[in-house]
Write a protein that binds this DNA or RNA. Structure first.
Length: 211
DNA sequence: GCGACAG
DNA sequence: ATCTTGTCGC
């Protein structure tokens, strides 16, 4: 069993492997992962693949496994990645990009779940969380598309608070792996033409049994 | 020592 | 995340 302190050390080592470079690939398929907890130690992982830019559902996988790690702020990936990898085994479509319901580089050690999963799968990932975890920022303007940077203690930009819908709470976007901030924001906006949460994540959340 | 704290 | 339906508001 991995202990919290061991998990933290692993994050410090893995964070050096995170890439902020987008390779310019053509994106036709976007995946999203989400995990739901029905109860009594059960983790229900959902993976969906959506076409891009059409945003039509292409594939959906749901898989139950036992919960093996508790929720500890900053260590979310150790709780949710195992069940996601189980579901990943059944996925037939090869996505070009993966969205995570979590932060990426906007994390105490620069390795939020989106970054950790990106390194594990060797795939570009984007973190799109519903609330704040780490970093300092000012509230963005109220119009759709307005955003403000999230900075670490040294002033380095590690994420963006983005308004995907006018007058609605913003989402917290940060690059996971193999992608930069600007490209991450572009995909989040392109995937959220109507709702606050990007379509891939909304569908994954729904598939996991929450919506 | 005192808050903050993805899902 | 989870316990949980209708309801107030734009």
């Amino acid at each position: 069993m991995v202990t919290p302190s061991e998990a933290i050390e692993l994050q410090k080592r893995l964070s050096s492997r995170v890439s902020g470079r987008w390779d310019g690939r053509k994106v036709g398929m976007i995946a999203a992962a989400d995990v739901h907890f029905p109860g009594r130690g059960i983790s229900r992982a959902a993976l969906v693949v959506i076409s891009f830019p059409g945003l039509e559902l292409v594939e959906s996988i749901v898989r139950d496994t036992g919960t093996s790690f508790p929720y500890i702020p900053g260590l979310l990936s150790f709780r949710e990645i195992p069940p996601i990898l189980e579901a990943w085994k059944d996925l037939r479509t090869a996505p070009d990009l993966l969205f995570c319901d979590s932060h990426g580089t906007a994390h105490p050690r620069g390795l939020g779940m989106a970054s950790h999963l990106g390194i594990t799968l060797g795939l570009p990932t984007i973190g799109c969380a519903k609330s704040h975890l780490f970093g300092k920022y000012e509230q963005p303007g109220r119009e759709r598309g307005e955003r403000s940077p999230v900075k670490d203690r040294s002033g380095r930009i590690i994420g963006s608070v983005l308004r995907t819908r006018t007058g609605v709470r913003p989402v917290y976007v940060s690059p996971g792996h193999m992608i930069d901030m600007r490209t991450s924001i572009r995909f989040v906006m392109a995937c959220a033409p109507r709702f606050r949460i990007p379509v891939p994540l909304r569908m994954a959340h729904q598939a996991a049994g929450s919506g």
